[in-house]
Each structure stands twice: as structure tokens, then as C-alpha cells.
């Protein structure tokens, strides 16, 4: 029984591996892009300039209030109308990164506001300048605080890459759909696909748990 199952899978193992690598690369790129957008928006929110604060608020409001799928369509199908034709992969990374950035911005902002005022003051009172105290005193503490929510974001980012199947990025979800179209075994292949996602998200959780333990001794 198991042997026959396995025989059914075997021809597709290499394809699954390739598709998983695509998911990983997509996730890593989108996560990095989301950190950049998130950091910019978080800084915008605490900016001295009203325009930047307003822009950050609008960005976060728009992203959180609209479906991710529609955001992906806007980037992939909408932008070409303005002459900006992107490959499915690049459009996907930009759309997911832009989407994740809004959530990352909120995480960073709440992390910054969780650091008591006295932490900055005691550093200033010792003669530290803004950039030194940000680098040495504030950001290391913020990083420890935002690590768990950032992990959750990374996991949802990885799962969201499956949405990119609709704009023809050949990642895990689209790959399994193409196999199912010829094998007519949706149950087995979707379960297999789910298990691969599960392994990847669990690895992220484990890495984060390790980092958290490493920092726990000081907090």
C-alpha cells in the first residue's frame, strides 16, 4: 500500500524540491522587502513632518483594509497600464513585501514605544548622541521585543507566497495544481504540499525559539 503510494510520488520529488526552493527564495525576498517598507513606515509614523506621518498612516490603513490578493493584482495586472511591466516573481515580491511592511511597521512602532523613556535619558545623560544610543541601547532592546511578532509575520509571509500561484509564479501551490491536473489525486498531493509548508514554517519557529532562548537570560 505504502509502496504504491510512494511510487505515485516519486516522479515528482525533484519538482517538489524545486518548487520549495522557489517558496523559500520568494519568502526571503518578500520578508526583506517588508522589513525595508516596515522600517520606513515606522520612522515615518514618528517623523517630525506631518506629510510623512500622514503617508505612513495612509499606507498602513490601505494595506490592512484591503485583500492581499487584490494588492497582488494591482501590482501585476494594474501597473503595466502605466508601462511598468514586471515579471510574476518580481511583482509578487513587491506586492507581498509592500503588504507585509504595513504589519512590520506596526510591530516596530509598538516595540519602540515599549522602551521606557528612562532608557534613552540615562544614555543621553552620559553624553551619548542620538545614533549611538539608538544603535547600542534602544534597537537591541526593540529587537528582543519584536522577535516573536516578526516571526509570526515571517510565517504568514511564507504561507502568503501561495497566493502568487494566481499570477503564474511556479511555486509549491501552482506546481501541485499542475500535477493534480494530470494525476487526478488531489487529496494525496495537497496533503503532501501542506506537509512541505508545515516543515518550512516549523523550521522558522524553531530558529526564532532558539534566538529567544538565547536572549532570554538578559530580560
Amino acid at each position: 500500500m505504502i509502496a504504491t503510494w510512494w511510487e505515485g510520488f516519486e516522479p515528482y520529488v525533484a519538482g517538489f524540491l524545486d518548487a520549495s526552493v522557489v517558496v523559500l527564495v520568494l519568502s526571503i525576498c518578500s520578508i526583506l522587502v517588508s522589513w525595508i517598507f516596515g522600517l520606513l513606515a515606522a520612522l515615518g509614523k514618528v517623523s517630525r513632518f506631518r506629510l510623512l506621518r500622514w503617508l505612513s498612516d495612509f499606507y498602513i490603513w490601505f494595506i490592512r483594509g484591503t485583500p492581499t490578493l487584490i494588492q497582488i493584482f494591482i501590482v501585476y495586472f494594474g501597473l503595466p497600464q502605466f508601462g511598468l511591466r514586471l515579471s510574476p516573481f518580481v511583482a509578487g515580491v513587491i506586492a507581498l513585501g509592500f503588504n507585509g511592511g504595513a504589519y512590520v511597521a506596526e510591530i516596530i512602532r509598538s516595540g519602540l514605544s515599549a522602551i521606557p523613556r528612562g532608557q534613552t535619558e540615562s544614555a543621553e545623560a552620559l553624553g551619548m548622541g542620538r545614533s549611538l544610543l539608538m544603535r547600542r541601547i534602544i534597537l537591541p532592546q526593540v529587537f528582543r521585543i519584536i522577535l516573536p511578532p516578526l516571526t509570526n509575520e515571517a510565517i504568514s509571509m511564507l504561507k502568503n507566497t501561495s497566493l502568487l500561484s494566481v499570477i503564474t509564479v511556479v511555486e509549491l501551490t501552482l506546481y501541485s495544481q499542475t500535477i493534480i491536473a494530470t494525476t487526478f489525486r488531489p487529496f494525496e498531493f495537497y496533503i503532501a504540499t501542506a506537509l512541505i509548508y508545515l516543515v518550512m514554517t516549523s523550521v522558522i519557529s524553531q530558529i526564532a525559539a532558539y534566538l529567544e532562548r538565547k536572549f532570554a537570560r538578559s530580560l
Partner: peptide, 10 residues
Amino acid sequence: FQSYNLWPHM
């Protein structure tokens, strides 16, 4: 200061 404000990560 009144609240000692030591840096907890060091």
C-alpha cells in the same frame, strides 16, 4: 534618576 534606568540587555 529615581528609576535606576540600567540597560537590561547588558
